[in-house]
């Protein structure tokens, strides 16, 4: 059976900027694909094309078996979309918002009302249901928006950075809701900037940067792709950072990563504890004082760093540099 969501060679250009540069993807029915990448990687552009909101310059895509370019209405009937910015009407109540969306999915009146109440309950919005959305918090709006995407129980769901900007509790709540959905057989394409989110929710993770796939696999495969463990050393004195980096280079199997303001050096190694011991001895012999040390399994953040040379969250990249 063909994948529920399938795209080949998607290209989208905005004047000089290439937002998508030949992206392929496939999501099998009832699975989750997480598209992981930093701001500007092309995640939202990809979602917009797959949900028919935007036309690709090149390439083809089908969703639920319908071509997104030729049959946008058929595609829209089969999908729910929850975007990065809550698409809700501020002056309507939560209930009125959902009922309206349900009716526009062509649900009957009683069904739209019943389902709206059900979702408000499920997303913990019952108390606020009959208040205008204007007074809702960011997390409440996001939950309402997600409820809007779910109201017609579409078999395919697109969530574009569903938890960006949410507090940890709201994020955890949303994760539970998303997992429930997929347990019921929904096919989900999710974009995120958070490694943790992709790892937590998705069977299949695609890392993209500058509109292109740079890695693809499940969390374990991605970790294997970039080697073994990481030794993380924090040196006590800023003056020692460069010297320590040079000393540790002999143990590194890939690029070292230095966080200047915390004086933290991350060294990819293979060989585990004995290598850590050797590394510490080398630092000790050279008289480099360290304040912290650790050995850890690589995270998806390391995957991203290794593959692209920069971290996933833009804010971190300013203070960081990569050395070989």
């Amino acid at each position: 059976m063909a994948p529920t969501i399938e795209a080949h060679g998607l290209v989208k250009r905005y004047k000089e900027v290439v937002a998508l540069d030949g992206l392929d993807l496939a999501v099998e029915q009832g699975t989750i694909l997480a598209v992981l990448g930093p701001n500007g990687a092309g995640k939202t552009t990809a979602v917009s094309i797959l949900t028919t909101l935007l036309k690709a310059d090149e390439g083809t895509a089908t969703v639920a078996g319908f071509d997104v370019r030729d049959h946008p209405d058929e595609v829209k009937k089969n999908i729910g979309l929850s975007g990065q910015f809550a698409a809700v009407d501020e002056q309507l109540t939560g209930f009125e918002n959902l009922r309206m969306v349900g009716r526009l999915y062509r649900m009957g009146k009683p069904a739209a009302v019943r389902r709206s109440r059900e979702l408000l309950e499920q997303f913990d919005l019952t108390e606020a249901a009959d208040r205008p959305v204007k007074g809702y918090s960011g997390g409440m709006r996001r939950r309402l928006d997600l409820a809007g995407a779910l109201i017609a129980e579409p078999p395919i769901l697109f969530l574009d950075e569903p938890t960006t900007g949410l507090d940890p509790r709201s994020r955890a709540d949303l994760w539970i809701a998303i997992k429930d959905l997929v347990a019921k057989g929904t096919t989900l394409l999710l974009t995120t900037q958070y490694m943790e989110e992709a790892e937590h929710l998705a069977d299949d993770i695609m890392v993209i940067d500058h509109g292109k796939e740079i890695a693809h696999g499940n969390a374990d495969e991605l970790k294997t792709m970039i080697g073994g463990e990481r030794v993380v050393v924090t040196v006590s004195h800023a003056d020692d950072v460069v010297r320590a980096t040079d000393l540790l280079a002999q143990f590194a199997v890939g690029e070292q990563y230095i966080e200047d303001h915390t004086r933290e050096i991350t060294v990819p190694i293979s060989g585990g504890a004995p290598v850590l011991t050797a590394a510490l001895r080398a630092l000790d012999v050279a008289g480099v004082e360290i304040s912290d040390v650790g050995l850890r399994r690589p995270t998806l953040d390391d995957v991203f760093l290794t593959l692209t040379g920069h971290r996933t969250e833009e804010t971190n990249s300013e203070s960081a540099e990569v050395r070989t």
Binding site: T51, K76, G83, A149
Partner: peptide, 17 residues
């Protein structure tokens, strides 16, 4: 100008609505 238009765009509703 409001966010709700993004919801309308994603719905299978009539373009004249």
């Amino acid at each position: 100008q409001k966010g709700i238009i993004n919801r309308f765009r994603s719905l299978p509703m009539s373009p004249s609505a």
